[in-house]
């Protein structure tokens, strides 16, 4: 398991997290949404251990509960990913529309395997279940945005070109 060094919590990050907590009324019942919002602002799009402990303290919930939530939900991550995590749909609709081409092309173009990041930390490749873009299959999703009809090398290149 990826272990964090202490010191992730810079004063800037802490201020941003506090703002998210304030906006949700420091309400522990909003933990899922709070974690998603925090994950968005962390450059490598995950929840560092230190942040989980911080939330437990601020929201007065057990850190074991915070970790349970992080480890349960597939959209929450406890280890660093990348600046642009590319989520490739592995479900059936994209499956019958040759998502294998998307997997192979992206791995080849980026020179990384599944659940790996490029050396500069910019791209990260992962498989996810259906995100409801079946009408534009095969599709990927990057930081909330869907890119569909990726049935040619050109379209995949164009998608990557947008990620800057």
């Amino acid at each position: 398991m990826m272990r964090d060094e202490k010191g992730m919590m810079t004063p800037e990050l802490r201020a941003e997290i506090d703002a998210i907590l304030t906006a949700s009324g420091n309400d522990g019942s909003k933990l899922v949404g709070i974690l998603l919002d925090i994950q968005d602002i962390i450059p490598m799009h995950y929840i560092p251990e230190e942040v989980a402990y911080y939330l437990a303290e601020k929201l007065n919930v057990k850190v074991s509960n915070v970790y349970d939530v992080i480890s349960f939900y597939a959209s929450l991550y406890d280890r660093p990913r990348g600046q642009y995590p590319i989520q490739m749909c592995e479900s059936i609709v994209c499956g019958v529309n040759d998502n294998g081409f998307v997997f192979a092309t992206l791995q080849e173009m980026l020179g990384i395997g599944l659940n790996e990041a490029t050396a500069d930390g910019k791209y990260y490749l992962e498989c996810v279940p259906c995100f409801g873009a079946c009408d534009v299959a095969p599709a990927v999703r990057v930081n909330g945005k869907v890119y569909g009809h990726l049935n040619s090398r050109e379209k995949i290149e164009a998608m990557l070109a947008e990620l800057v």
Binding site: V32, G33, L36, Y73, A74, S75, L76
Partner: peptide
């Protein structure tokens, strides 16, 4: 409005 987090 509440958000899920990737759990069918």
């Amino acid at each position: 409005l509440y958000s899920g987090a990737g759990a069918y």
